[in-house]
Design a protein around this nucleic acid. Sequence first.
DNA 1: CACTTATGTTATCAACTATAACTATATCCG
DNA 2: CGGATATAGTTATAGTTGATAACATAAGTG
Lengths: 158, 158
Amino acid sequence: MKREAQVPLADASAVAHRSLLTQATTSLVGYRLRRAQLSVFHRFLMLFDDLRLRPAEYSVLVLIADNPGRKQTEIAEVLGIKRANFVTLVHGLAQRRLVERAASADDRRANALHLTAEGQAFVVRARALHDAMEADLVTRLGGPAGRDRLLSLLDRLT
Amino acid sequence: MKREAQVPLADASAVAHRSLLTQATTSLVGYRLRRAQLSVFHRFLMLFDDLRLRPAEYSVLVLIADNPGRKQTEIAEVLGIKRANFVTLVHGLAQRRLVERAASADDRRANALHLTAEGQAFVVRARALHDAMEADLVTRLGGPAGRDRLLSLLDRLT
DNA sequence: CACTTATGTTATCAACTATAACTATATCCG
DNA sequence: CGGATATAGTTATAGTTGATAACATAAGTG
């Protein structure tokens, strides 16, 4: 995880056999973006190891908690998940008794998603965990202003 | 790609059946980071569709170009790729006659990586393509100063 | 009504990542 | 020196993720 050290040299083979010229890759927006995202997600995975919850699952649970009764497709689309792949995801959460798929009243094709009582308690715990992580990230970014600057910059890339 | 619209409501089920409450997920650093990264990578994939080159392959080629003669393990480690997975990646590039695996002089176990003449010409083309994309990203970020601010913020997350 | 679209689902497939085990070398140290 | 240990590349394998196609059922629509 420690690169850098780009000495101004004409020929890399003339330099010591330890440092590589990496500025052509490591200085790229896409590359750094990926590394930062992997780092944050890795931290999430560590933190949620006990709860056996993945980032996508967490976002699904929170979204259902805030929008009970919505169809699978609606939740999936907001998160950019294909509905075919969303089936497996919801199935796992349903097996763990965190989510219920109720038959929708007005559309018999659709599954209305709700949290179970257990699911709601679970989300409270998960949210607390994640809020702590988020708070630490904000601190690293130099407070809410730094966070907002980052989000603003990220938006311009999308 | 168009969320937002968090009306101050006590119950989401009372609101119109179109907008979802998403601020709990979409305002998160990790989530936005992932979306931005996916967006940039998606753009990369579109751009490099003709060249049939993936982001990881591009970074490998550039790294070999700037550091000819290095061992597979060295290149792989810098990029955070497991050497077991790096084998397949290099094999693909070698089959396309872009990269050569030469026996290392001082270590008969190691493969010294070089670009072929064809590989060097290919990298020139790829670099030009990528430089154009990078320039556009920098423009979106409000110039080099914006880019540097972004990279600085991303570093704090790692 | 027939035609088209939407929902959830299953079955695949490709790409990426991670781990274990193996070989052949290399290095270390008593 | 020589045996133990570590390293480079490789293979095999499994888990995760994302994408696509096809299907049954149900809604919508002219």
